[in-house]
Design a protein around this nucleic acid. Structure first.
Lengths: 126, 126
DNA sequence: TTAAGTGCAAAATCTTTGCAAATGT
DNA sequence: ACATTTGCAAAGATTTTGCACTTAA
């Protein structure tokens, strides 16, 4: 399945890149001011995720946040997820924490994916 | 608001305790074989969570998993969450990993909650 | 041209809520 | 007795899907 360069994808990727934080569908939609369909946004985001272009973090609220993270290593052209994300309970901002972490895994266990979200108050809100 | 000892709560707590892993609403419901209402299960689980009796972990799928974790420290009678959970992509089991972890947080940030889920294959399925 | 992407509407999934009836203390 | 809990049904919220139309290559 060959990917095409569409306006929708370009717009969403630009927003993610310039934002620097992890955005939910809702946040993206308000940035886009309803110039794009709900379903398209979801489809583009999932495409980005499948292609390893962005992270997906799922919050305690069950909501998906997507982030283009410039600081990430990308072995095999995939984002890796060996770091935490932080969600501010006041301003709602979701960001990548840069510290790489060591994921502990018992013998015989195989890691496929990692979702680590810390909730609290960021330095601007605490 | 004083809590009462009801059958529903006792049943659910028993299942959680004897299971040893983190259960979703769906898993609980099938254990209960429809002898309890959907809403009641959710309400009991949230009550347990509010009271610090159980963990809540939210999966990459956005689904809530609840666990009674005997090995947990419980300062202030609250479960603490300084460990990861592991979800097997094959058998679906969700368990607490016992390794305590250090949560890295930049200066000025305040931790409130932590949700860490590793996905992969467990030792029985890998 | 033609497969990939989009818009629209509808469905699917998980979770919460309002209210009357039942239950624990 | 009376506040808490339950069952039922309905609503909410987020995400996915089917299908016809559009668009990039």
């Amino acid at each position: 399945m060959k990917r095409r360069r569409t306006q929708s994808q370009a717009k969403i990727l630009n927003i993610l890149k310039s934002s620097g934080s992890a955005l939910s569908h809702e946040m993206l939609q308000s940035e886009l001011e309803a110039e794009m369909d709900r379903a398209t946004i979801y489809r583009v985001l999932n495409r980005f995720y499948d292609d390893g272009l962005v992270h997906k973090v799922v919050g305690d609220d069950g909501i998906q946040y997507f982030a283009y993270c410039a600081g990430c290593d990308k072995p095999n052209n995939k984002h890796n997820h060996n770091h935490f994300h932080f969600k501010c309970l006041k301003c709602g901002n979701v960001e990548c924490l840069q510290d790489k972490i060591q994921i502990p895994l018992p013998k015989g266990y195989v890691l496929k994916d990692f979702n680590g979200l810390i909730s609290g108050y960021c330095n601007r809100c605490s």
